[in-house]
Design a protein around this nucleic acid. Structure first.
Lengths: 253, 253
DNA sequence: CGTCATTACTCGTCATAACAAGTTCTGGAG
DNA sequence: CTCCAGAACTTGTTATGACGAGTAATGACG
């Protein structure tokens, strides 16, 4: 059967954006805007090949990425299906606080309480992979959501980074985004520990809650893409006003 | 053109295990046992092709999987490198409590407090996608770690599943593993909400803490691989004895 | 009517091939 | 010696082709 090799209209072949990325985004849009309903079967790989005019490898790469995002799932021998609607989609991403909130439509800002240089000490030094006596920068901020204080962030970064950060607009910009966009540091993963505690005097004042109120304490170590620790934080969230939400994938190993 | 089907040497081609999986496991072993040191450059793709006698596609699939696991990372134009050692590796997986603890060498068991059938009600019904009046099963368990109570789990599942679960050895087996291994239900992802609260009278008695002690409250909805909600839980963890740890990847989109 | 083999579909795996794009080293021009 | 072009590496993207394996519908057979 002769297939007319028509140039797939929608796709830009000269673009610096890979084909599979373009296809992935077209399909993601169709899923999110409801063109493909949840639990519906998606077009098969061979259909997608001909409609987009690309090879199967390219189609599979696009579908594989969407599967990693949790938008679709496959059943061997049957087909590819759309997962449940949006709601929570990709919350298991590493995001800064402002990044996460603004993507949900909330307005936030931070108040910088203090910035100071100090020796790392044993605990922080161990996390940031620095000697106890090495100078690092401690940065304390209170995060506000709709004018109400919601968390106290105590951030430790290496001196070189901290001195640059001190000059930035920390009230309105996420540290994560500054590191990535301005400093060109690719972030990899974060390790979290979450526990519950009671507000002490200092926390109560900063978060405008009663002493003894429940507080969510998160210890977060952020790593660069090549695994170097770069940012160690203690985050104290008001227990009454905030819920830490995420989505975790079962390992597909 | 007929292609002679020649068999490359070292790997098992008759095995039901895909080549890329075999290669992935060989490489993972070498990383974990230190043959490839952290931050060291791994053999290039072409080297791996010739040493294993496979095509580049196969090598890339193995490396891609290892990258998803966080064991290696790649730099375009430079090469493939080993990430930081183990420590935390793959904690962002969906695991049951016992599953997670026993993989860390702890002994756990559960005490079943109650199992009862009841109408779903608005909150639970919405989560499990059931009518308010539909009968579901509520299961209360206290989890013990080294003989100390550490959490109260309140689990809601559809009646059909709950009635089967009631006959199982819930004291020593994770619900997740029963669902997957015995019932053949593939689990997909879980959505979590974490918040901090104070122990009330009932919780304090169950967890053997003082009333007003900090408690980590986790709301967890577990979905099957095809996105159907199947298990909704409230988990109340003792704030003094437990830390919820995880590792989150920055989106590689 | 129930069972089973066939068949036609799906996704899963793997080979070969080519070019693009980023990095590093080298050698020659100035 | 310095600087810059290019070679020689790396990973990234894409095409074409083939076979395997799981699922489902079909139809023949008992």
């Amino acid at each position: 059967m002769v297939k007319p090799r028509k140039t797939p209209s929608q796709l830009l072949h000269v673009s610096p954006v890979p084909l599979y990325t373009q296809i992935k985004e077209i399909l993601r849009d169709r899923i999110l805007d409801g063109s493909y309903q949840a639990h519906e079967q998606m077009p098969s790989e061979s259909e997608l090949m001909s409609t987009f005019g690309v090879s199967r490898i390219t189609v599979r790469q696009a579908l594989g990425d969407l599967q990693k995002e949790g938008l679709i799932f496959k059943i061997h021998g049957k087909g590819t299906y759309v997962s449940k609607p949006k709601a929570f989609q990709n919350i298991a991403e590493l995001q800064g606080f402002g990044e996460a909130m603004s993507s949900m439509g909330y307005e936030t800002f931070s108040r910088v309480v203090s910035i100071k240089s100090m020796p790392a000490g044993a605990t922080v030094g161990a996390r940031l992979n620095a000697a106890d006596s090495e100078e690092i920068v401690e940065l304390r901020r209170v995060r506000y959501l709709n004018r109400a204080p919601i968390s106290l962030d105590v951030t430790y970064v290496p001196k070189s980074i901290g001195e640059r950060l001190a000059k930035e607009d920390l009230a309105h910009r996420d540290i994560f985004l500054i590191l990535e966009n301005d400093y060109g540091i690719a972030l990899g993963a974060a390790e979290l520990q979450i526990e519950s505690m009671l507000a002490d005097d200092y926390l109560a004042r900063q978060l405008k809650v009663e002493e003894g109120a429940p507080v969510l304490r998160i210890e977060r170590l952020t790593l660069t893409a090549d695994g170097r620790p770069i940012d160690f934080e203690y985050l104290y969230y008001r227990g009454d006003a905030f819920q830490y939400r995420m989505r975790i994938e079962r390992s597909h190993v």
